[in-house]
Design a protein around this nucleic acid. Structure first.
Lengths: 254, 254
DNA sequence: ATTGCTCTGTTCGATACCGTACACACTACT
DNA sequence: AGTAGTGTGTACGGTATCGAACAGAGCAAT
């Protein structure tokens, strides 16, 4: 299913795409396709062979591990700062994680073949992908440690901040049940933690819609993990020029 | 400090080095240096700029995160199946993790410059490094999930198996205190878990020396995390030819 | 208005792990 | 033999999280 829309969306809204040298942009952009991602859709399952990579624009994708028991835990988040499908260029073709749309929106899709062709032509893109991958590794590592040492309250704050950074405003569409899956805890645990934040006036939520009212306080209440990851990511991937141009284009459903 | 020893050690005992094409071996091996690693030594601190990568032969290196509070947790282990210092070729130059020698032994050191030079000359080495990095990512992810969902008992089993795979025999030199640091739990927790394994006749240990008596049982008692990581690693990095040749060579202390 | 469904709030006992404290055992050194 | 130091065993209360069960509240469709 395709339709042409007049959007305010451009590949440049993805940080990785926006910092590429102009010549690489010129070669690559004709081949990227705009894809619409719906909340809860599964982008790929653990073990799937990947054919495309996705550069989120205003969507958020959650990488999560599912255990034999069915219990799950999010190991990292990807928004417009990153790319989904690193296994494709890392050479493994698949991963043992599942990718789920955590926040609906758009992403640009690129065929894996185009990507790897570009790798051989010019090292810039590869270098960028690798630095991004390293920042992802940082996030995963910090998650591992955070799971071990920090309370649900702290982790919820961390998680909200991670989401906030990848959204255009302060509203996230997300039930407590889903957050619980991401954090790998019971839904009741999230209810309790969210209740505290509500009482403190930090957030406001109603049936699957959360609004962050006081970001600063959220940062105070969060564990160090958020800041550590942010700092390291900024080091690895300095922000590029963030001016955008808009145009009409095709949209495809995932 | 240097001395020439007659060892039974060769670069081929490291799996990554051993699967390289002959031409790459010929270019690279003249530049690798044998390094002796002592138990407990810190290979690099979080944030250190890396100048070398290390290919362990019979040593084990633990990558661990240290939090502001001083609490720590191991996020992955590297033995002769891998390489320490991926940040160097990922482009980040440093990581937020610390690398500690978990089991004394030898490793081959290669200047980062030599490594990246080889990347430009021939894609084989890069591809291998990237696939290894992906297997490392798998390990980190699984660790994150394991920290969330599994008991200390299960995790101790997993940890012992990870160590066992990287050692020549069934003996590991390791106090409960150190294991506790790796797992990010209290020493008493390890004492208790180890006590159970002792009673079951699975392990035998005395003041910092652990002998695994029944590996099969250990695998049964472990959580799935060990098997998942092993399977994925085998997929990403098929074993090469493991015949070795021996010769005299220099040894350097770290 | 009724019904049904999803999302949230609350309770209760169970349990895994923590923090603290201390006793004991083995080893090495004097 | 005595002493110091390191590694291990155990005990106790405190707490965060779990598992299960259920009640209510908001929303949608009929």
């Amino acid at each position: 299913m395709q339709k042409i829309i007049d959007t305010k969306i451009t590949p440049l809204q993805n940080h990785l795409l926006s910092v590429l040298p102009d010549e690489v942009k010129e070669r690559l952009f004709p081949f990227v396709e705009l894809v619409k991602l719906e909340l809860g859709e599964v982008m790929y399952e653990a073990g799937d062979t990947l054919a495309n990579v996705y550069f989120p624009v205003d969507s958020i994708v959650s990488l999560l591990y599912v255990m034999e028991s069915g219990a799950s835990a999010e190991i990292s988040v990807v928004g417009n700062e990153g790319v989904v499908g690193i296994a494709l260029f890392m050479g493994g073709e698949s991963t043992s994680s599942r990718a789920v749309i955590q926040s609906a929106g758009y992403a640009y899709r690129l065929k894996g073949k185009r990507l790897t062709e570009e790798f051989h032509r010019h090292g810039k893109l590869l270098g960028l992908m690798l630095r991004y991958t390293q920042s992802l590794i940082t996030q995963m590592s910090q998650t591992a440690v955070c799971n071990r040492h920090h309370t649900i309250d702290q982790q919820l704050c961390r998680w909200l901040l991670l989401s906030l950074d990848r959204l255009p405003d302060n509203n996230l569409t997300m039930t407590q049940e889903l957050i619980a899956n991401m954090l790998g805890v019971r839904r009741e645990g999230v209810t309790e933690a969210a209740g505290k934040l509500q009482k403190l006036g930090v957030i406001d939520y109603h049936r699957g819609h959360i609004t962050v009212l006081n970001r600063q306080k959220l940062e105070q209440l969060s564990c160090e993990c958020y800041a550590v990851v942010k700092k390291e990511t900024d080091r690895l991937l300095p922000h590029g020029n963030e001016k955008f141009y808009y145009h009409s284009q095709n949209v495809i459903n995932l």
